[in-house]
Amino acid sequence: MLGKLSEMEIDRLLKEQVVGRIACQSNGEIYLVPINYVYRDGYVYGHSAEGKKIRMMRENPHVCFEVDEINSIFQWKSVIANGKYEEITDFDEKQQAMQGIIHRIMPLVTSAEGHPSHGITEKDSDVGTLVELVVYRIKLEEITGRFEQG
């Protein structure tokens, strides 16, 4: 059976998942990339080093965000939302966003060498010293949710 997720089910899925995907578009090019995120009050919060994704979202802040939960080919949930990229410059807001992301991903770290930068730097000691992180949020708009339950 195919169906639509309720607003409460959409909110729950966005809060439960840790990895989502951002699709951005600039100068005729489309780029889709997974991110670790935290969802709060209608916003997806994420962070990244400077690169293609950040450059494209700065050029065109209109993005699409997708998250899903797949148990099998016939049992899944998916949320897709259009939204707007906003770079966070306020120190306190950046710190709160990063703490939220860290709290979501740290329970999933399986080795002592793991750290919240999740691959931006090679070692814990490099976090914050070698790479300037861009912290951002996406205001979700036009949110839809679907499911299949077989």
Rank of each mutant, 00 (worst) to 15 (best):
V67Y: 05
D68N: 10
D68A: 09
E69R: 13
E69M: 05
I70R: 09
I70M: 12
N71S: 10
N71Q: 11
S72W: 07
S72G: 14
S72M: 09
S72K: 10
I73N: 12
I73M: 13
I73C: 05
I73V: 13
I73W: 11
F74L: 14
F74T: 14
Q75T: 07
Q75W: 02
W76H: 03
K77Y: 00
K77H: 04
S78F: 01
S78E: 11
V79C: 01
V79S: 03
V79Q: 01
A81P: 00
A81L: 02
A81W: 02
N82L: 05
N82G: 04
N82H: 04
G83F: 03
G83N: 01
G83R: 07
K84M: 13
K84E: 15
Y85E: 04
Y85I: 07
E86H: 12
E86F: 13
E87T: 04
I88W: 03
T89L: 12
T89C: 01
T89I: 09
T89S: 05
T89H: 10
D90Q: 09
D90N: 15
D90S: 07
F91H: 08
F91P: 09
F91I: 11
F91C: 01
D92L: 13
D92M: 11
D92V: 02
D92W: 07
E93H: 06
E93L: 14
K94L: 02
K94C: 14
K94W: 04
Q95V: 03
Q95I: 01
Q95P: 00
Q96D: 13
Q96R: 15
A97H: 03
A97V: 03
M98R: 07
M98L: 15
G100M: 08
G100E: 05
I101G: 06
I101W: 08
I101T: 09
I101K: 06
I102V: 14
I102N: 09
I102W: 10
I102E: 13
I102L: 11
H103E: 15
H103V: 03
H103S: 15
H103I: 00
I105K: 05
I105D: 06
M106W: 07
P107V: 12
L108V: 03
L108E: 10
V109L: 12
V109P: 04
V109M: 13
T110H: 07
T110G: 00
T110W: 01
T110M: 08
S111R: 11
S111N: 12
A112F: 03
A112M: 05
A112Q: 10
A112L: 12
A112C: 04
A112D: 12
E113N: 11
G114Q: 10
G114E: 12
G114V: 02
G114F: 09
H115W: 01
P116G: 08
P116N: 08
S117R: 02
S117E: 06
S117T: 07
H118Q: 13
H118G: 04
H118F: 08
